[in-house]
């Protein structure tokens, strides 16, 4: 039963990963990416690691993908399609992908996996204690560092959103106002003439 579900999820994930990079419509790529992320969450659920699965759903599927969709919504039109890359580039990236894949597969197949005798799901309370423990194996330092990083990012975002003082518009000294006025006047006269001639016709 678990095997069937695993292979189903794996097929969905691989297929949508390929579709995600090969689709020429940007928003469709994002949706395929979403399927990959949801599939990963499904794998975590299958491993009985509920907390990580829920985090995957909230942070990646619910947060990051929504942000990506938002940016696509702002910059893309429905009829736009991504251009196809040059063939030399495509060969190069295919080669890189194959190299990455071979390293990945090599590592997986050479690693001796030990089957766990007993499995128990990690509870939220355990994670919380581990995050705040300063004894051996505790995560208090990374936790605090990440908090400071997030705080800095937040302050940065607020500063950018608030904007600085208005930039003063400097007038270049060489600007000749009389000349500009004259030009404008001439242009306006020409426009009037044009209009008049067009109405006569």
């Amino acid at each position: 039963m678990e095997k069937v579900i695993f292979y189903l999820l794996a097929i969905i994930m691989v297929a949508s990963a390929i579709a995600s990079v090969s689709s020429r419509r940007m928003l469709r790529s994002v949706v395929y990416l979403l399927f990959v992320l949801i599939g990963a969450a499904g794998l975590y659920f299958l491993m009985d690691y509920n907390f990580l699965a829920a985090i995957q759903l909230t942070v990646y599927a619910g947060g990051i993908v929504v942000l990506i969709i938002f940016s696509v919504l702002l910059i893309q039109h429905i009829e736009m399609e991504l251009e196809i890359a040059k063939s030399s580039r495509r060969w190069f990236s295919a080669l890189l992908c194959l190299m990455g894949l071979s390293i990945f597969l090599g590592t997986i197949y050479s690693h001796p996996f030990a089957v766990a005798e007993t499995t128990s799901t990690t509870t939220v309370a355990e994670i919380g204690r581990a995050l705040l423990s300063f004894e051996k194996g505790g995560f208090i330092l990374p936790f605090e560092v990440i908090s400071i990083l997030l705080l800095a990012a937040m302050i940065g975002a607020i500063t950018i959103a608030k904007g600085g003082k208005e930039i003063k518009q400097e007038v270049p000294e060489s600007l000749d106002i009389d000349k500009i006025l004259q030009d404008a006047k001439q242009q306006a006269e020409e426009k009037v003439m044009e209009l008049e001639s067009s109405t006569k016709n």
Binding site: L34, I38, A54, I55, L57, T58, A61, G62, G63, V65, V66, I69
Partner: peptide
């Protein structure tokens, strides 16, 4: 529940 409800908006 919170995680699931964050997907509906997509």
């Amino acid at each position: 529940l919170i995680a699931i409800s964050s997907i509906g908006v997509i």
